[in-house]
């Protein structure tokens, strides 16, 4: 099998806006398989040799014929995310290595699976939703997705359609800055309701900003989910 930790050059094949601040980038497929939820490291090199590296979650499923998908959110003053937002074009060569990470789920792991994402933390969970649909449609899966505003919801159309069309997959979308749920945060009631609907999860994945992940992981433990069944991934910093 190819060495996943060797840096190699990959090419941007497509760029699509996902929200005002998030773009989807399609690259050549990785040399080997990944598990849904894993990330890659990306490295940029300046003419003077200066390099910057960042980790980005993979949104696509292994073997996706459209290639590897990353969804990159433009951060304020983002040295690397700013490059992807403003400079990167189709055909550009980018150094990448991976897949990396233990925040991962595959069909053989089974379910029920409870996913909780905040903001762009939904990206690795989207890969799991897609993986389930493709390779494990019998596994019950529920995604609680907290976003600030409707316009900031990543893959909204896809997630809503899957929730409507796929038996066994449910989406709970919480908008925290507009509409009837403005001001609400994910709380114990929402977690309990999700577990009632889904059953006690065998696996739970939580991804988002630091405070979000800490709060949600504590709520899951309080609701009776085994700590060893909970995997967390935090971004920021």
């Amino acid at each position: 099998m190819a060495d996943p930790f060797r840096w190699r050059s990959t090419t941007i094949r497509a760029i699509t806006p996902a929200t005002a601040r998030v773009k989807s980038f399609r690259f050549d497929a990785l040399d080997g398989p990944h598990r849904a939820g894993q990330h890659v490291d990306v490295r940029l090199t300046a003419p003077d040799g200066y390099q910057a590296q960042r980790s980005y979650s993979i949104a696509s499923v292994p073997g996706d014929p459209a290639g590897l998908e990353l969804m990159i959110e433009r951060l304020a003053d983002g040295e690397v995310s700013g490059f992807f937002d403003e400079v990167a074009e189709i055909g550009d060569a980018i150094e990448m290595r991976g897949p990396v990470g233990a925040f991962a789920w595959e069909a053989a792991d089974g379910g029920p699976v409870l996913l909780v994402g905040g903001g762009s933390g939904v990206v690795p969970l989207l890969a799991m939703v897609r993986e389930r649909a493709l390779r494990a449609p019998d596994v019950p899966m529920l995604l609680i997705y907290s976003a600030r505003r409707a316009a900031e919801v990543i893959a909204r159309g896809e997630l809503s359609a899957r929730s409507r069309d796929e038996t066994g997959f449910d989406l709970t979308l919480l908008l925290t800055r507009e509409g009837p749920t403005a001001g609400r945060r994910i709380d114990r009631v929402m977690i309990d309701t999700a577990i009632e609907c889904l059953g006690m999860p065998r696996h739970s994945f939580v991804c988002g900003g630091n405070a979000f992940v800490g709060t949600v992981a504590d709520l899951l433990v309080d609701a009776g989910v085994r700590p060893s069944a909970i995997r967390t991934e935090r971004f920021g910093g």
Partner: peptide, 28 residues
């Protein structure tokens, strides 16, 4: 090989010499 169009924002020399390769400084 340089990445087309990337200049980055290398930190000041006194920070750069304390940063191992591939790292960036955070206050968080």
């Amino acid at each position: 090989m340089a990445t087309r169009g990337f200049t980055g924002r290398p930190p000041a020399a006194e920070i750069r010499e304390r940063l191992p390769p591939g790292q960036y400084l955070t206050d968080d």
